[in-house]
Structure formats: structure tokens, C-alpha cells
Computed example of a mutant assay.
Amino acid sequence: MLQLNVKNESSRLRAVVLGTAENNGPTPTIEEAYDPKSLQHIQAGTYPIEADMVKEMDALNAVFEKYDVKVYRPQIIENYNQIFSRDIGFVIDDIFIKANILPDRERELDAIQYIIDQMDPNKVVRPPEEVHIEGGDVMVWNDYVFIGTYKGSDYKDYITARTNMEGVQFIKDLFPNKIVKAFDLVKSKIEPRDNALHLDCCFQPIGTNKGIIYKSGFREEADYMFLVNLFGKENLFHIEREEMYHMNSNIFSIAPDVIVSEKHFTRLNTWLRANGFTVEEIPYAEIAKQEGLLRCSTLPLIRD
């Protein structure tokens, strides 16, 4: 049986679900775009092709092998995008929470059912229907759970608003001993440079006391200040609008001192190395065109 354990974002990784780009299906139509960045690339004719994305995910898999991480992959669904395993579920402590995602992505959960079957059924939770929550919005940080949400009254009009306040309350009720902090994120259906699709698009804790942050991703300055006060300004790497667009905060930690990052993130990778991190650089720029990156395509199950 899988002994789930995830207490934070950066402890030594032992087991992970890595999405797959195989059998990814045709380029979506404009109507089928889930986010403004995909839409932009569909319109420009630069939407990523399957072979390139498979290559990028193979590079990530190779890094996991190097660090002796057990990797699970979803079962292949014909002509279907299964890259972003982070959206469909997440682990807090020893509980696996199935995400209530966009209804037409339900099949992605079925494709990892064989992994869920290896968990203690008492430790697998499915929130009620009115609860919207996606893994990209949820970050465990020891005593804290950080959750990205959108508090605007026009929530239902935004396909980019993925986690609602009912989702925040659900996690509060499930983990009464955790400090659950909600962050109101900036959303846009048309301008990817002003759309924080998930919390990990504008913030991610790394190491033991550091983080990567994009100030303008937060609708309320108080939410941003909460993180500055918690981590200390000198411990936060501030990314710019263009870096946020290229998903610089969406890297992935294998250990407190080991980070997988995109090879074009020059400024970030230089800062990480200067702060004592080992940086495993891989190409992931094609996958980034779908407004998701390294954290989005991984679902950690066990960390030390």
C-alpha cells in the first residue's frame, strides 16, 4: 500500500505521478481553449506538437530517475491531454484529495485510478460537488496550507477561476490543525500576462525558507504582504510580468536543495545557484505554451 506523505513543497521526493503527452490529440479549436495562453498559441499557429512535448516530459522523467524517484504515469486515453496531473488531485499529509476539476476532464482521474487503488481507501477524499479546487492552487507548507482562489462576484464567468471559497472552506474543515490561508488571484480570459491561472503561477515556496513570487498576481496587496512577512523579503525572488508569463514560478523541487527548472529561466536559475540550490535544467518551453509548467505536470505522493 502507498504510504502517502506530503508535508511541504520541497522535502526529498520519493514518489510522484508525472503526466503524459502521449496520444495528446489534435490542436484544440479556439472554442476549446481552457486558458488565454493556449488560445494565443492556437490563434498564432504555434501550439505545441506532441513529439516535442513528449521529449520534454522524457527529460523530466530522466531527472526523476537520476534522483531515484518512483514515477507513476497515467494510463493513456486516446487523443486526450493528460499532461497536467497536478490539476486532478493532491496530497496533504497522508490524505489524497481528488480535485473537482472542469467536468470534461473527469476522465483524467479514471486514468490514475490504478494508483488510487493502492492507497488506503479511508485516506482518499472526494469533495462535494459545490467545492471547486485544483492542485495548482494548493500548497502545503508545514503548518500552513496556501490556497489560490478568486473572490470576484463574476467567478462563474471565468474558466480561469478554478478554486472557489467553498474549496478553501473544505480544506479548513478537513485539516483543522493547519493554518489555511486563501489568496485572491488576478484572472483574465484574454491576456495571459495578467492571468494567474493557479497560485503556482505567481508563487512557490522553495528550499526551507525561500520562495519565488510575482507581486501583481495578487488582487490584494495584503495577500502579497502576508507572504513577504512570512518568508522575509530577502528570501523571495521577485519575478517580472514577462517571467510570470513564461511560468518562472512553476518550477519543481526534488529536495530542499535540488530544483528542476526550465533552461531558459536564466535570471532565476542564476539566483537559485547563488543561493545554494542545485538546478537541473531541462527544456519545457513547449509545454509552457499551455499555461502550465513543471509543477503543473507533477503530483507528488511521497516526500520524506
Rank of each mutant, 00 (worst) to 15 (best):
I115L: 12
T46H: 03
E9K: 05
F90W: 14
Q43W: 00
N250L: 04
I171N: 00
A196L: 05
E9V: 08
I133N: 04
I115C: 09
Q113R: 14
V71H: 02
G135P: 05
N177C: 01
A196M: 11
Y114G: 11
V260T: 13
E243Y: 01
A274S: 14
N209R: 08
K215A: 14
I287N: 04
L272Y: 00
I133V: 15
I95Q: 05
T278F: 11
E65L: 14
R105K: 14
E242T: 07
K187M: 06
V228L: 04
A62G: 04
D68T: 14
N122F: 09
E220W: 06
I282C: 05
M57V: 12
R107S: 13
T208A: 08
A59Q: 09
D257S: 15
L199V: 11
V6N: 06
D94A: 08
N195I: 03
K187A: 04
H264L: 14
M247A: 09
E242C: 00
V125C: 06
D157A: 13
I239E: 02
Q204M: 13
E281V: 13
G207N: 10
L18Q: 13
F183V: 08
L294N: 03
E242L: 10
I88S: 05
D110M: 13
I239M: 10
F237E: 00
R295I: 01
D58E: 15
V180D: 03
I213N: 02
P103V: 12
N24G: 10
Y245C: 06
R107W: 07
L2C: 09
G19P: 07
A161E: 05
S297G: 01
D143L: 06
G89P: 06
I302T: 12
H198E: 05
I42Q: 00
V260L: 11
L294I: 12
K178C: 07
L301W: 04
F175R: 05
D110L: 15
D117Y: 08
A255L: 11
N100S: 09
K187G: 03
I179D: 07
I77T: 12
P205K: 01
E191A: 04
R86C: 13
E280Q: 14
Y150T: 07
Q82C: 10
V279M: 09
F237Q: 01
P192S: 09
Y214T: 02
L227K: 01
Q204A: 05
M225T: 14
K172M: 10
S11P: 01
D120F: 10
F170I: 10
I83N: 03
P192I: 03
E286P: 00
D194E: 12
N100I: 11
A21E: 03
I302Q: 13
K55C: 02
L294H: 02
D110T: 15
E31C: 06
I115E: 06
R105C: 11
A33C: 15
M225S: 06
D143E: 15
P300F: 03
K123E: 07
D257M: 12
F146A: 04
W141D: 11
G136K: 02
N24A: 10
Y47T: 03
P127C: 11
D200P: 02
R295D: 01
E242D: 14
V228W: 00
Y47R: 01
D257H: 15
V131E: 06
Y245F: 15
N250G: 04
T163Q: 09
Y245M: 07
S10H: 01
N250D: 03
V91I: 14
G45H: 00
